[in-house]
């Protein structure tokens, strides 16, 4: 464990807490993409297959359970909660995310970390997470105004993977000494997808204006 990875995990956890807070306190999921939440449930389920077979630490087990639990809870709120589901902007959440699932699965079959079921699925989760934010970013571009909690959620979600990139650089020089192309390139793509969001988010924060993405 290093400071970059710990900061990354805490930022990721915070993003999920902010989203759960928004949904529970405002009883609304306006501006949130259900498709991105579905993709994240898939990312966690395919990445943490070794949850019961490989023990790393209490922290590792705990965080995996929290990530799976909270992402399923958010999915449930948006899909089935009688009040929250009314606030889901279904017509704006129009990204064809099934294409992302199929594309990433084919990519994982072609370029897996290793040709075993768990490693192909692990690679799938790495590829899928890199593009999982796309439905959410498309939805934000269509939303007229983005509320603070939603903006903070997306910002923290993007920031966590940027911290993971630092974690990988640190691990490269201190312990692994090998290039891990799949997570590194996926992580770079994932962080790059947030680039323009980061720009407008920081602008709105500096100018104390409402966050607005150009259509």
């Amino acid at each position: 464990m290093n400071v970059f990875r710990l900061a990354g995990d805490m930022t990721h956890l915070l993003s999920i807490v902010v989203l759960l807070l928004k949904i529970r306190t405002t009883k609304s999921c306006a501006g949130i993409s259900l498709k991105t939440q579905e993709l994240y449930v898939l990312v966690f389920l395919t990445r943490y297959l070794d949850l019961f077979t490989r023990y790393f630490s209490v922290y590792n087990v705990l965080m995996k359970l929290i990530f799976i639990g909270t992402s399923v809870a958010i999915f449930w709120y948006m899909r089935y909660h009688k009040v929250v589901k009314q606030t889901y902007s279904k017509d704006l959440d129009s990204f064809r995310h099934y294409h992302l699932i199929l594309g990433c699965f084919l990519m994982a079959l072609l370029i897996p970390f290793d040709f075993s079921v768990t490693e192909v699925l692990w690679t799938f989760s790495i590829y899928l997470e890199a593009v999982a934010i796309l439905p959410q970013l498309v939805l934000l571009q269509k939303s007229r105004n983005i509320d603070n909690l939603t903006g903070n959620y997306v910002f923290l979600l993007g920031a966590y993977r940027a911290l993971y990139l630092l974690n990988w650089i640190y691990r490269f020089f201190t312990e692994i000494h090998k290039i891990r192309w799949i997570p590194w390139i996926s992580g770079l793509v994932q962080t790059a997808l947030y680039a323009d969001f980061f720009y407008y988010y920081i602008q709105s924060w500096r100018k104390h204006e409402e966050l607005k993405l150009p259509a």
Binding site: F56, N60, F67, D114, W168
Partner: peptide
């Protein structure tokens, strides 16, 4: 098969 040394990450 090369060990996946990033498996201890989240």
């Amino acid at each position: 098969s090369t060990p996946n040394d990033l498996k201890d990450e989240l």
